[in-house]
């Protein structure tokens, strides 16, 4: 359940939504406009197959294969398709590279556009009015809320996904991971890092001993 609603009104709204959904599905099936197994398959795909692991593969490959990274930054759509990731909300992909002096963060202020083929469906916070309204105006404050304090010397670029182009951040490879393989790097790359609201951290064992 989303955290902000616990009232009985909200529970009633959920029951109503479930009933209205059943009614709509029943009518669309009866009228031959949709089949049950198409709905089942879409739910299965986005619950099980299409998620941030796809994006993590793209990032880990870019970190370990300079030629791939170059292709990825020049033509994101084609380079992502090389790994087999194509689909709805990913017809035009642009990959934004973080550097020691520039950090990128992605939003959709008008809607909740998001690169589904590589990140799956967006988390609720990405679709929230708070994130959509605030990150274009006060990205530093928003990133601080996510636990990331960026020095003023680092430029922040906020990408508002207002056309059908979809954006993904190529985060910086964390220090101390130079000897890790693509397969070892992949699990370090989080969804939030590819949206641009989190840093990729090196595994604890590789971080400076304090």
């Amino acid at each position: 359940m989303p955290h902000e609603h616990h009232g009985s009104e909200h529970i009633q709204a959920e029951i109503d939504a479930a009933l209205r959904t059943k009614a709509l599905e029943a009518l669309l099936v009866e009228k031959g406009l949709i089949t049950t197994d198409v709905i089942d398959e879409i739910v299965r795909l986005y619950e099980q197959d299409i998620g941030p692991l796809n994006g993590a593969k793209v990032v880990a490959k870019a970190w370990t294969d300079p030629a791939y990274k170059q292709r990825l930054l020049e033509d994101g759509t084609a380079a992502i398709a090389e790994l087999g990731f194509t689909g709805s909300q990913g017809a035009e992909m642009v990959v934004l590279e973080d550097t020691p002096t520039v950090h990128n963060v992605v939003v959709c202020t008008l809607c909740s556009c998001y690169p589904w083929p590589i990140l799956g469906l967006p988390p609720t916070w990405y679709k929230s009015f708070a994130y959509r309204s605030r990150v274009v105006r006060e990205p530093r404050v928003v990133l601080r809320e996510f636990g990331w304090e960026l020095p003023e010397s680092i430029e922040i670029r906020v990408w508002d996904s207002n056309s059908e182009v979809r954006y993904m951040v190529l985060p910086e490879r964390p220090a101390g991971t130079e000897h890790l393989s693509e397969g070892e790097l992949m699990p370090l790359v989080t969804r939030d890092a590819m949206i641009g609201v989190a840093k990729v951290e090196a595994p604890q064992a590789l971080q400076g001993g304090e």
Binding site: F129, A130, V136, V142
Partner: peptide, 12 residues
């Protein structure tokens, strides 16, 4: 909504 005030903190 870009730039609006009043929606509070981002809940995750």
């Amino acid at each position: 909504m870009g730039g609006m005030h009043g929606f509070g903190p981002i809940k995750r």
